[in-house]
Design a protein around this nucleic acid. Structure first.
Lengths: 243, 243
DNA sequence: ACAAAAGTGTTACCGTTACACCCATGC
DNA sequence: GCATGGGTGTAACGGTAACACTTTTGT
């Protein structure tokens, strides 16, 4: 990176359309699958390719609002976590930039979301263009969306280790095994021994026993816990690790 | 950016100018100050306020290139670390949006940079509009730049704890005290005992003794170490903590 | 009764913390 | 020789990892 005191004629400021693309994850705890929401593109560019659900930002609409709008156009869901991921904006990342004589750049602000799988219903207007797709078999996506997915998956793993986003997406009352399954599905089988995971979580003190039990087939019934926001708030900004 | 099935009257897609704003940190190890680069705005909006150095993205220029360009317009520096920080884009964050009848949004993609203070020379064209400012006494900045600074400072502390960016900015050969001072200046006095910091770092094995010593006034001369890229690469993706 | 699921306990080990202490140099 | 800065050692503590074990249910 040098020190160019650019005196030469500088190229004019670019005009942008700004898109928001969402990496929306959910965990199918029944079948132990980590899912990502994809839509099939009806039109060019990349017609019939899958892509991340996205939209162009409209007038007097914030980025986050646009992200929520995209989400609510594709799925109905109450419980979710959403945050900004990364902004991709190299020239040439969208073929539409070259359609006109005058350059019109497309910038993508990506958002990361985690939603509750069980109470999510896809909005598929009779066509099957919006689908959950297992992360393990993501096809070639439109634009640079494969890269965005990778980035989002990294973020998901980090968030899971250092912050309590799982509880935004688990049911109100859950068993410690539910929680463990959730973590296992995202982080892989050997992320931690169940007994140690259990001990760590309980020691942290923000999971309170509801007193209720649930029996799933054979075996001892499991205690139902719930996430205690207040108890958790006390641990704020303490290095919190679920490993 | 896809296929919105919206049948209601939807507001039209917004047109954006995209700015890049840099949060540029440096550490003045002599005087133990954490510094941030600010520029005084010559024109409205926010004339005579300090702001982050920034620029509008030009045609066929990538975001990162724009970030590097801004940097090189303000300072001459060889050794630095740079990464994207966050994107701010709510409507109304730039007063210029309301100048014309037709809405013209301003989006800010912020970048985080850490540069070597000692070999940085400010490019101040005879006016003193570009200055290092101690982080402890940041004034009211233009736009939403105070928020961006806060965000950048958080990132700096995190990066310092989990990644080796300090070595991008320290001299080739440095003493363990140099390193410790650096960390102390950024993270605060009580982030760790020197002897423990030292033991941890040396145990990690990517600091190699150059054999050289340096004497600074009275006291035992200090060994000069250097950062061993190769040794560090082996530890990649292992949870690396300097605390 | 026995398999299955949930939950508890134990032990060896390693990293962290908070110090006290030793070493080499300038003045 | 003593202050100054650099460097080493250590003992208490607490968390982690791996594993064995006990408890409670369904069939």
């Amino acid at each position: 990176m040098g020190n160019q005191h650019v005196t030469s004629a500088k190229s004019p400021v670019a005009e942008f359309k700004v898109g928001v693309d969402n990496v929306i994850f959910s965990v199918d705890t029944q079948r132990n699958r980590l899912l990502i929401l994809l839509v099939k593109r009806p039109n060019d560019p990349f017609a019939n390719y899958f892509s991340l659900p996205g939209t162009l930002v409209r007038r007097s609409e914030s980025l986050e609002t646009a992200a929520y709008r995209t989400l609510s156009e594709k799925i109905e869901v109450e419980n979710l976590y959403l945050e900004q991921l990364y902004t991709f904006g190299e020239p040439g990342r969208d073929p539409r930039e070259y359609q006109d004589a005058i350059e019109n750049r497309y910038l993508s602000v990506s958002y990361f979301a985690l939603v509750r799988y069980e109470d999510t219903t896809l909005i598929t207007k009779s066509n099957k263009k919006t689908v959950w797709h297992s992360l393990k078999e993501i096809p070639q996506l439109a634009f640079d969306h494969n890269r965005i997915v990778d980035y989002g998956y990294q973020r998901l793993r980090n968030k899971l280790e250092y912050s309590p986003i799982a509880f935004k997406v688990l049911p109100e009352a859950f068993t410690l095994n539910d929680l463990y399954q959730f973590y296992t599905t995202v982080l892989g089988e050997n992320f931690s021994d169940y007994s140690n995971f259990r001990a760590r979580l309980l020691k942290l003190g923000f999971l309170t026993d509801t007193g209720l039990k649930v029996s799933r087939g054979a075996g001892r019934p499991a205690a139902l816990y719930r996430f205690d926001e207040d108890a958790f708030a006390l641990l704020k900004d303490k290095p919190l690790v679920f490993i």
